[in-house]
Design a protein around this nucleic acid. Structure first.
Lengths: 189, 189
DNA sequence: ACTGCCATGTAACTAGTTACATGATTGG
DNA sequence: CCAATCATGTAACTAGTTACATGGCAGT
């Protein structure tokens, strides 16, 4: 199928492919390297794929005809590769965005997982884990509040998501505080 | 290495293995099938592995000597297999819980992802996506509030996590409402 | 001189999913 | 009698990671 034009309806690529395609849909010509950095800015709400995975998705998108590749020769090392969406790519992006059913939320919340198994642990150690997590949450929020004002003009929607992210991390922080209280109660009882 | 006793420090199994081991650490003898149902109760904060994955992890835990297997013959079909933690398994469980560094939070938030790329979509369609998500969030919360009171005695910590889950979904719900307002503002402007 | 960033590439691996098959038992 | 549940098993696949290699260029 790759290489063809996927005339026969939904190719449902993996989510990572749409993430890459979506980044290119902002209209700029980007390299795999730049895409990787962008995808790292999405880490607040979407796990960042490995570098090798980005390159793999680009090859796949190219094979589907959803992007074009422009090569720039760099003597003595591999060509630099710039990618751009095609019309077919934009169409597929819109189809995904507007018609593809939304996949369920995926969370791997390792902190909750440990608290879930808390009966096997020292409550103080659990409280430490929660405190570490709270620190990390504050860090995320700080990074987001730096990032958000930088998102203007074509990035209205990313700015919206950044705001959502801040709400998310703030809410998580208050929940963590409540859990630490609960742990204190359990210990005192 | 499998088959040995992992005397030489941390074997770092994948998170799924610890989830299974942790469930067994509640002390009951369980089948793969039962473990799968339990793991589905953890879907609120930890993605549920496929059935085949649970069985694979059990084989791995067995090979590591972290669980024992008891067979029950069932004429005409495969033996029923009951699993139980060993001392080594409990030790490994505690090591993971208390000393293994906590993995970072993994989220694949498909709704945020779509909103992030919202410039390519009809705002009404985005609002619909958010509404669907809100409905799902309310559903999760309803299920949790049924589940929570059932968690007593040895399940104090799971109950705690259920409470956290409710806070999580409720907070997410208010964030979604705010995002829908923002979309309305964007459309009216 | 050294560090860090730019930029691509690949091999080997592991985690995980999908989809199917088997067949008994329970409950309406 | 039928559907759902119990219970295991397997093959084929795909998504994704880890770890390494290459080498130029910019700044301190």
């Amino acid at each position: 199928m790759p290489g063809g034009s996927d005339r026969a309806g939904a190719p449902h690529l993996p989510a990572t492919a749409y993430a890459v395609l979506g980044l290119l849909a902002f209209g700029r010509e980007l390299t795999g390297y730049e895409l990787r950095k962008w995808s790292m800015n999405m880490r607040f709400f979407y796990w960042s794929p490995a570098q090798s995975q980005i390159y793999a998705e680009l090859r796949r998108l190219l094979a589907h005809g959803f992007v074009t590749e422009r090569l720039e020769a760099r003597p003595g090392r591999p060509d630099k590769r710039f990618y751009r969406t095609t019309e077919a790519g934009m169409a597929e992006f819109h189809r995904w965005l507007e018609r593809e059913p939304v996949e369920p939320l995926v969370i791997k919340h390792s902190v909750m997982l440990r608290l879930f198994f808390g009966h096997g642990a020292d409550p103080d150690r659990l409280s430490d884990v929660l405190e570490d997590y709270a620190r990390w949450l504050r860090q995320q929020n700080a990074e987001l509040s730096v990032l958000r004002p930088e998102l203007s003009e074509p990035f209205t929607y990313p700015a919206l998501v950044a705001e959502w992210g801040e709400l998310f991390y703030a809410a998580e922080l208050t929940a963590v505080e409540k859990m630490r209280e609960r742990l204190r109660d359990l210990r005192e009882r």
